[in-house]
Amino acid sequence: MNIFRLVADLMHLASIFILLLKIQKTRSCSGISFKSQLLYSIVFVTRYLDLFTAFISLYNTSMKIFFIATSIYILYLMKFKFRATYDPNLDTFRVEFLLGGSLLLALIFSDFVLMEILWQFSIYLESVAILPQLFMLSRTGEAETITTHYLFALGGYRALYLINWLWRFVTESHVDKISWIAGAVQTALYSDFFYIYYTKVLHGKKFELP
């Protein structure tokens, strides 16, 4: 563990809390893409199946359980409790291409080891899972401030993982090219969002697309 990955994980944790706060406070999931949330749940379930095969640490185990449980809870809030506030007409990204593409890459590069296929699938999928949300954002042209804080924390956590990997490469000779490339793609997808977040929200202005 290093400070970069610790802060990254805490940011990821914070993003979940911010999203839950937004949904609870406004009693609405408007502006949130159910498809992206579904993809994140799939990411967590497929990546954290090693809960049953390996024990890393209490920290590692509890974080995994937290992410799986909260992501499914968010799906429940969006699909059932606050379903009246969700507009599927705004959430129209074709996720089957993201799922299919991730699975294909995982099969190609995994030597057909099941746990490795699932892990790689989750890494590739996570790198593009924000696309339905960004697509929805581009269609509405604006976002609630709290939603932008959620997206900043979510986008920022993998950016910090990039620094964590740089640190681990230099200090431990730790190599993980698949994670590096997927993490870079994942962070790059947020660059437009980060720019608007920095120039508007952090100056007290509303998040609006030009």
């Binding site: 080891v113 490795e116 892990w119 993980d176 090219k177 698949i178 994670s179």
Partner: peptide
């Protein structure tokens, strides 16, 4: 491309 080492990150 990727070693099948034990994954210790989230």
């Amino acid at each position: 491309l990727s070693p099948h080492r034990e994954k210790d990150e989230l």
